[in-house]
Amino acid sequence: MSRLAPGHRGCAGCCDAMAANFVLEAVGDDAIVVSPTGCLEVMTTPYPESSWEVPWIHSLFENAAAVASGIDAALKAMGRKGNTKVVAIGGDGATLDIGMQAISGAFERGDDITYVCVDNEAYMNTGVQRSGATPYGASTTTSPAGKQSFGNPRPKKNMPAILVAHGSPYVATTSISYPKDMIRKVKKAVDIEGPTYVHAHAPCTTGWKFDTSKTVEVGKLAVETALWPMYEMENGELTNVRKVKNQKPVEEYLKSQGRFKHLFTMDGGKAEIAKIQAIADWNVEHYGLK
């Protein structure tokens, strides 16, 4: 199986490591991988060691998509493209905050790259700060719960929708808790020509505060409460939605993680949980999860 070599510095139970393994399994050896700055990059490449066994490059925090575009152009220009896949694997902050411009440009140009966003919902490598992907009500170090705060006051940025609007032929959401689903979707994405995007939900034991053994279990709860809808968008059409039979109440997901525990202890927390339930219910309606 193609995967990261062991010995990397990822936390025990690391979601990024799992995500990278599933991407590598999906793309195989004939691939060039680009990573922006972040947990994945730092934990896999402490000079002079590297966990990567495919050609891999890290440049800066905000330019993975642009670097990938450049590699794609170079391979085409020099007649070396063949079946080689150019894949970017990066975290949420690097993808949809600081990297927004680069990925928008690459997708607008139609460059033949696949971008996999590993979404652990905060800037984890720098100490769990809030990103545009941090969900409503989550406590992070720059959106902490406090006497006058219920945590992050904004919902997640809907990055898949933004890239569908760019005309991407294939955009999908998945989760590291569903490895076969993720491998299937990444494989499909790299086999489609043009800019394709896979957004993988990735529960982080350190940042979300749960036991290292629960990474997969927490991710499943996100899907089973309809907070993380899993679907594919092909040429702008919603296809292949993963139905949620017996939708669980969001409390089950929220209480599994330390980053939401303030919602259960603060005055007014119940009302906040109700707002989160409303987000889940909207997903059910909007994506047809029933």
Partner: peptide, 16 residues
Amino acid sequence: ESEFSAISALVGASAA
């Protein structure tokens, strides 16, 4: 789409 991407794309291309 910007000079930042102009130089970044060349990082990837030159490294390739």
